[in-house]
Amino acid sequence: MMADPLKRRQTILTRLVLVCAAIVFIAPLIVAALTSLKSPAEITRVLSLPTDLWWQNYAAAFDRMGRSFFNSIAITVPAVAFSILIGAVAGYPLAYMRGAGGKAIYFLLLTGMLVPFQIVQIPLFFMIQGLGLYDTVPGMWLVHTAYGIPFCTFFMRNFFASVPRSMYEAAQIEGCGPARYFWKLLLPASTSGLSALAIIQTRAIWNDLLFAITITSSDNARPVTVSIAGYASSLQVEYGPLMAGTLVSILPVMAAFLLFQKAFVRGLLGGAGK
């Protein structure tokens, strides 16, 4: 393969393109990482290298984030699971229903994606308060599950629609009911789709700020994004701890990415039809 000079040039070219793109993607994060290690005096020079490594920013970030970091994990893990499950539960019949009713319901659920979340704030507050879930972690599960419905349904319905219909028909012939088919055959065969959605949902829920400030008010349930946002104040921004907190908060999402990415590729390479 390498003997072909044209092929070789192409390979070099693609590598070059990738490396350039990677530099563009990573440069802002390098600046962020450098900033997270600068003292307040040094932060006035944007592109300078930190002279001493000012780890205090990380200490400050941990100090403020502490509990909220664990809240974020306690919120995100179940909320991701619930929202994917409900997306699958709603997506399954919508992928197989033929007729106007199914389409109408699908259309209705999709319109939810168009709703700017800022407008639901006040009614949402009253509902959550009425349910006694204000400032609780389960309250956050409920909200993320509910507001994940349109996207998760959309995603899972499209995924299920791409699963060969022959599988469904074969199951029906063998007398496998629709519920059994869903739990025993369809879900296990959909690891790749579920994993991809898990990555997307992890990121969305982990990074949510709007719902967090609407229905949490204390360390009982407040997630890490609220603490991070707290470093950007009305007039002042503490860039050092802000960037330190940001970099630390990326880690769980990256961990989820790596974790699901593996299952994801394996599921794909194994084939959906097994």
């Binding site: 470093y231 104040s233 009305s234 007039l235 002042q236």
Partner: peptide, 12 residues
Amino acid sequence: EIWHYYAAGSEL
């Protein structure tokens, strides 16, 4: 509770 938005630096 005393609510405020002085979240950083000398303000906090």
